[in-house]
Design a protein around this nucleic acid. Structure first.
Length: 819
RNA sequence: GCGGAUGUGGCGGAAUUGGCAGACGCGCCAGACUUAGGAUCUGGUAUCUCCGAUGUGCAGGUUCGAUUCCUGUCAUCCGCACCA
């Protein structure tokens, strides 16, 4: 009988599909397990990254199921987004049509790989019954002050006439038309994620099951920094400017102040000043710089004097106020104090504009002076030239100086975050419409929940020119105000697709609920996700937004948990010849090609065997053949031995029988341990070793022991099942079983089969291996020592030397220390 | 600059609390079966001055014993980056 993977795989996929094998519901008699892989964007075809992601997830799901868990393992589609619209512009296909046909294609590809999803729970974010609740989420945020609209500088492509997301700006250029992206001041919707900055930061500590890398990336992204806000009076006015600084201890070293050119107060400051023209020129220049150039570390620091002075609240000194390109309007207060001696950026700026450099902190062990300074001294030290604070260590001085400022009413302690509010509006068609209307009488009015969803119109033209398609669709725009019934205009922006993907894992718990996004009862049973698996590229955006949503829904009482993902596995990339697979490099290996040549089981086995899940994996065609060869080897072994299968209990054993039983049971032990820690590559290698032992038994055993062979074959099939479910299902059947493999329990090893009556131990002299001996594992350390000293080799090595010490580790080794 | 990781044969990788470095697989070499084999089976495969030394990026340290723990250092990759 030949291993006909195509026939077998299609047969079992059909059975699974028709019998609803992987349908799951709540069952309080079993512990639940929620295994989740990041849902794909329906681009049209699966790539190897998907195959890897979902193969890992499928092993986890199938393994946990065999271990007695009630496993939720769903799949869906992150189906809103720009490519659908681009396809519409290019080919005239409506985004919906393009999306649904891509989904159909990719769903069948997933099925062809035999993943154990409960397809009854499939969700697609672009379906009205889903985005109804994305809109519901928006309303909940809006009602609780967490969604707001404000004017903001956004990326603007002048050629496409549209706003772009940061991700769509590549090296300062539009990813589609390659024209230079500018900035535009527009009214935009934001989610107030900054309200949760501290909580999101604090709870990173709880995420023990997440990789350090992701935790530190999120920590950096949130970017908490502690310091103070200090108020500087404007010279000749009663107004003040507030700076944020982490180094109030350097306040006596301030020799100038800088304000961001876009700062709203700038206009007032420069109006009528002799420097006005120069300043306006500078502002124009900075605004024309792209964000990339502007925020690059090596961009030269430039500025102009505003003609205005401010007063240092500590020293009373009058200092000049500059505009400069290195200050950002949206961080801190948009105004920064310049301390050239103790900050490298300020040092560079002061050198260029010949501003005073005054040292106010010096290292403990040496003196530094302003004249000879070649770079800023940013380290710890002792305060000097700092009035009553002189002589204090800067660490002690810092809280004292903040307290002093608070006492005198010109400053306070302040914590700033780098995290910005989340801009969620997009001037795009293929996204969830924001459920808001604008009424001349009532202003901004939310759509009542009962009227959701606000559906996307279908009769829309895609030209890629002019305004967003929705704003040019009068049937959509013109509506009535839900409050007063008068004429009103709909919001024509749609939501960022990351909004849709921030809550999909909750929807899987209760996907057919028409009243609510999910019931508390169902999420209380299933949430949180026990194991989340996906690429590290989502380390910040998606994973942070999902945490934010979970916390908001938790605080509003809709969900019990306050973190969505208990454990996170970030799988490595699939490479070819050391580089990322890409169409432009022409090194793409398509899953379909591999499946048709070797089958889904081989594809899965290779991908799981070639590297540990979190590491990058280099595609290797000959190693794929190796995986295929192994499956053939398994197939032949079972085929050859299946007639020995019996119900008889294990009885008398020959030496060969014992050897095989040892191999089988230690494989069960190893594979179990390896699967528990997701070390699938070593789990597979342990199974390979067991198959090698089985072949060796076939070759060497004088007489075949049917119960021992039965144990071996059954264990082999069961251990291999989570990795390669089709071939094992078939082998389970051909070897005479009538029950379902998918619900069979995971095998347990027989510890008596692992007992041996002799083991080999190592004899070391001074830590170097000199001999080996075979002894009973029960020998005491003293007995072992005695035996070891009798070894001829050992004797020749210790002859004429003094034995200082003998270390005996039971079942392992003996080390004799000599001088 | 800040943060995170990774360095082991020709290659992918293994060694869970310190205890035989290189499991398993790829590749390569040899043998068997065969008209033939790119099928299959069996054996071999770290390096060298190969009778016994050396080897887990490099240099130290702790220990009877270090791929594993500690200190320093180098290299590569990834993320953030003019954030005051």
């Amino acid at each position: 009988m030949k291993y006909d993977f195509d026939l077998i795989e299609k047969k079992w996929q059909k059975i699974w599909d028709e019998t609803g094998e992987f349908k799951i519901s709540e069952d309080t008699n079993k512990p639940k397990y929620y295994a989740l892989e990041m849902f794909p964007y329906p681009s049209g075809n699966l790539h190897m990254g998907h195959v890897r992601n979902y193969s890992i997830g499928d092993v986890v799901a199938r393994y946990k199921k065999m271990r007695g868990f009630n496993v939720l393992h769903p799949m869906g589609w992150d189906s809103f987004g720009l490519p659908a619209e681009n396809a519409a512009i290019k080919h005239g296909t409506p985004p919906a049509e393009w999306t649904w046909s891509n989904i159909d294609n990719m769903r069948s590809q997933l099925k062809r790989l035999g993943f154990s999803y409960d397809w009854d729970r499939e969700v697609a974010t672009a379906k009205p019954d889903y985005y109804k609740f994305t809109q519901w989420m928006f309303l909940k945020l809006y009602q609780n002050g967490l969604a707001y609209k404000k004017k903001s500088y956004v990326n603007w492509c002048p050629s496409c006439q549209t706003v772009l997301a940061n991700e769509q700006v590549v090296n300062g250029k539009c990813e589609r038309c390659k024209s230079e992206v500018g900035k535009k001041d527009l009214e935009q919707w934001f989610f107030k994620i900054t309200d949760y900055a501290q909580k999101l930061l604090d709870d990173i500590d709880k995420l023990d099951g997440w990789p350090d890398k992701v935790r530190s990336m999120q920590t950096n992204w949130i970017g908490r920094s502690e310091g103070a806000e200090l108020q500087f009076k404007l010279d000749g006015s009663d107004k003040t400017l507030t700076v944020f600084t982490t180094r109030p201890d350097t306040i006596y070293g301030v020799s100038y102040m800088v304000i961001a050119p876009e700062h709203p107060i700038v206009d007032e400051l420069i109006s009528g000043k002799p420097q006005e023209a120069e300043c306006r020129e500078f502002i124009k220049k900075v605004q024309s710089q792209s964000e990339i150039v502007r925020s690059a570390t090596d961009t030269e620091k430039e500025g102009v004097f505003t003609g205005t002075y401010v007063i240092n609240p500590f020293s009373g000194e009058k200092i000049p106020l500059y505009l400069a390109n290195y200050v950002f309007v949206d961080y801190g207060t948009g105004i920064v104090m310049g301390v050239p001696a103790h900050d490298q950026r300020d040092f560079d700026f002061a050198k260029k504009y010949k501003l005073p450099i005054r040292v106010v902190i010096s290292p403990e062990d040496k003196d530094i002076d302003s004249e000879n300074l070649t770079e800023a001294f940013a380290a710890e030290g002792v305060l000097m030239n700092s009035d009553k604070f002189t002589g204090l260590n800067n660490k002690e001085a810092l809280p004292k100086m903040i307290a002093y400022a608070e006492e005198h009413g010109f400053g306070e302690k302040k914590i700033n975050f780098r995290l910005r509010d989340w801009l969620i509006s997009r001037q795009r068609y293929w996204g969830a419409p924001i459920p808001i209307v604008y009424c001349d009488k009532c202003g901004t009015v939310e759509i009542p929940e009962s009227q959701l969803p606000v559906k996307l119109p279908e009769n829309v033209k895609f030209t890629g020119q002019g305004k967003s398609p929705l704003s040019e669709c009068p049937e959509f725009v013109n509506t009535t105000c839900p409050k007063c019934g008068g004429p009103a205009r709909r919001e024509t922006d749609t939501m960022d697709t990351f909004v849709c993907s921030s809550w999909y894992y909750m929807r899987y718990c209760d996907p057919h609920n028409t009243e609510m996004p999910f019931s508390k009862e169902k999420t209380d049973y299933w949430m949180n996700v026990d194991q989340y698996i996906g690429g590290v590229e989502h380390a910040i955006l998606h994973l942070l937004y999902a945490r934010f949503f979970t916390k908001v829904l938790h605080d509003l009482g809709y969900i019990g948990c306050d973190e969505p993902f208990e454990n996170l596995l970030t799988q490595g990339m699939v490479l070819k010849d050391g580089t990322k697979m890409s169409k432009s490099l022409g090194n793409v290996v398509s899953p379909e090609e591999i499946i048709s040549k070797y089958g889904a089981d081989t594809a899965r086995l290779f991908i799981l065997f070639a590297a540990p899940p979190e590491r990058d994996l280099d595609w290797n065609d000959t190693a794929v053949e190796g995986a295929y060869r192994f499956l053939n080897r398994v197939w032949r072994a079972v085929d050859d031995l299946k007639d020995y299968m019996t119900d008889e209990k294990i009885g008398g054993l020959s030496e060969e029988d014992k050897k095989l039983r040892f191999a089988v049971n230690s494989a069960i032990k190893k594979v179990t341990e390896n699967c528990n820690r997701f070390s699938f590559n070593t789990a597979i290698s342990a199974i390979m070793e067991m198959v090698n032992s089985l072949y060796s038994y076939k070759e060497k055993a004088k007489e075949y022991n049917a119960p021992v062979i039965t144990e071996a074959i059954n264990s082999l099939i069961l251990l291999l099942y989570p990795f390669v479910p089709h071939i094992t299902s078939e082998l389970w059947e051909v070897s005479g079983h009538t029950d379902k493999l998918s619900t069979h329990s995971w095998p347990e090893y027989d510890s008596s089969a692992l007992v041996v009556n002799e083991i080999e131990i190592v004899l070391q002299i001074n830590g170097k291996i000199r001999d080996k001996m075979v002894i009973s594992p029960d020998l005491t350390p003293d007995e072992m020592k005695e035996l070891a000293l009798k070894s001829e080799k050992v004797q020749s090595f210790i002859e004429g030397k003094q034995v200082v010490k003998v270390i005996a580790v039971p079942k392992k080794l003996i080390n004799i220390v000599v001088k």
